[in-house]
Design a binder for these strands. Structure first.
Lengths: 139, 139
DNA sequence: TGTGTTTAGTCAGATACTCTGATTAAAGTA
DNA sequence: TACTTTAATCAGAGTATCTGACTAAACACA
């Protein structure tokens, strides 16, 4: 099987499981919303940066942020350093989802380690870390 | 960085690059169409199987197959073993895209190997192969 | 300082993708 | 034969995404 698919399958598996866990905990967000939400920095992030990072247009990011704002997961505050810009910030409500996501991620990693072994898990992480250096458009 | 994102980033990078290469070679397909197209078996595949494999509903798979059929990349033939079913098959036209995709994939793998080294690349593949055993919903 | 260019974000409109629910027809089962 | 399941489609709706045009603030520099 080609390595693209080999990366895609577990990647989607993680996405599905974390979203399911977060939804089950009562946070009603979609996958697309979650992809934006998880990229918001604790200190706040500009829309343009979110868009780049999630690899969507500013319009799409704006659309998703609007929804997350309406649902009370995000808020927009003026950017003190730039009058044109606003900072998107996560609300207290959204912060409640973080431990849920982390717990599910930890559960997944434990299962994976169980299946492939501690050594291979470390190798996997190391290789992926290095790959992100050349494949992450937002670094 | 969490391992979900660590998998997602290079995975999307591969998708983007292969799609771009295939598009550049004159095959006018979307990402969603490509995800279905690449899952069609040489001997033909049932719509239901495609849907499961690509993790979308039968309706969505049907919608995408319709478009690919109109564009001449897929055809539907009766399934000789089941009167209800039809087999989706790739046309000669679509087969031309395979070497394009393979060449781009080879290029990507070469670049990656260049960056992380042959040994780590082999370890990566091994770990991912094993992970797919527990994360591939369609195996 | 004033003018032209870039940047951050939004508005409007269109398209693509995906889903839920209901339906038809062919198999499979007892 | 009657009941249940399975493969696929139809109809309709909702979500996500894009292109193009626009406003306002910031920046660059002659």
């Amino acid at each position: 099987m080609n390595i693209g698919l080999l990366l895609f399958i577990p990647s989607r598996n993680v996405e599905n499981r974390i979203l399911a866990a977060v939804n089950a905990a009562g946070f009603d967000v979609s996958q697309a919303q979650a992809r934006v939400l998880m990229r918001v920095d604790p200190e706040g992030t500009r829309l343009t940066v979110l868009a780049e990072s999630a690899q969507v247009t500013k319009q799409t990011a704006g659309f998703l942020v609007d929804q997350l704002e309406k649902a009370g997961y995000l808020e927009r505050v003026p950017d003190p350093t730039d009058g044109r810009a606003r900072l998107v910030r996560v609300t207290e409500k959204a912060k409640g989802a973080v431990p849920v996501a982390n717990a599910e991620m930890a559960r997944i990693e434990a299962e994976w380690e169980q299946h492939i072994g501690k050594r291979r898990m470390a190798q996997l992480r190391e290789a992926l870390d290095m790959l992100c250096e050349i494949t992450d458009p937002y670094r």
